[in-house]
Simulated assay, not measured.
Amino acid sequence: MTYCVAIKLNAGLVFLSDSRTNAGLDQISTFRKMIVYEKPGDRFMVLLSAGNLSISQSVREILQVEQIKDHEGGDPITIWNAKSMFDAARVLGAAVRHVYDRDAASLKASGVEFNVSLIFGGQIQGEAMRLFQVYSPGNFIEATPETPYFQVGESKYGKPVLDRVITPDTPLDEAAKCALVSMDSTLKSNLSVGLPLDMVVYEADRFQTDRVMCIDDQNPYFQMLHGSWGQKLREVFDSIEDPTWDGGATEVPLMVASARNKPLKKITSPKEKLI
């Protein structure tokens, strides 16, 4: 499986992906799921992929040469000449459909579902940063201030910390830390997601970045974050009182009078009770 997350902030963009793929307990491999498309001073784009590896690799290759027609009669649009991230996302959608038209029928005949999920974001000169999630049919949605991040793959374990921390005003470094905590939570709970990680942090209006890194199990910051997050969670958990049923010395009893209906209680015999 896979876990990828991308965050859109006022200050920039954060992209993070793992690199584990597996087709069974004894078929575990490492493949990068992130690719950066950069033309310094003009455009900066990042693609994250999850799903069937053969499909996502085909999409990545075709994307670099895929064209769509310009309705105004101009030159065909590619990711390298698109005037907006929306048009670049349209090219990506066309690349997905290209692979579908070529491979979907033969995959289905072999019992394989056409399954790919993509996150595509960046900035093109002349417009603000944009972030999209692209689905298997090639359609897509865009991140908003109310939903400033996207996840693909094993998203459930890393979602809670993103929901609690990330807003459009979150600083870039804090968002990068939050993405790494989100990934660490996923690594802890799901063996199908694994190191090394690929991370890109992009500052708005730069159209290039040198903050591109590969994080393995020897990375000192990730080792520190992994240990500190687990320890701090335990400390917070221990600082919360255990439930006290009848009040006693606590001001926050668990069992209190309520206007709601009482839990169902059925007594089946003097020796047996079901609640």
Rank of each mutant, 00 (worst) to 15 (best):
T209M: 03
T144P: 03
P263C: 06
K232A: 15
V212M: 13
A82S: 03
D198K: 07
I141M: 10
E203P: 03
L233P: 12
V134Y: 02
A89E: 01
T244Y: 08
F207G: 02
G121W: 01
R164E: 11
F120M: 01
A179M: 04
V181D: 01
L195V: 10
D246W: 13
K232E: 08
G111T: 06
I7A: 00
G153I: 05
C214M: 11
N190T: 07
V99Q: 05
G41T: 01
M1Q: 09
D70M: 00
K69H: 14
A6Y: 05
K188Q: 10
V134C: 03
Q223I: 14
T244Q: 15
D75A: 04
G93S: 05
Y202A: 00
Q223K: 15
K83L: 09
R211V: 05
D216Y: 03
Q64P: 04
Q67F: 05
R102V: 15
I28R: 09
P263I: 08
D103Y: 09
T147R: 15
V165L: 12
A143R: 02
T268P: 12
A128Y: 14
T167P: 02
V256P: 08
E154I: 14
S189R: 09
V161H: 00
T147A: 12
N219I: 01
M224R: 15
Y221V: 07
K188F: 12
R60T: 13
P137C: 04
F150I: 05
L16C: 03
K265F: 13
E72G: 05
N10H: 11
L162P: 00
K69P: 06
L162K: 00
W229I: 07
H98L: 08
D210G: 11
V91I: 05
N139T: 07
G227W: 08
R60D: 13
D103H: 12
D205M: 08
Y157H: 11
T21R: 11
F31C: 12
T2E: 07
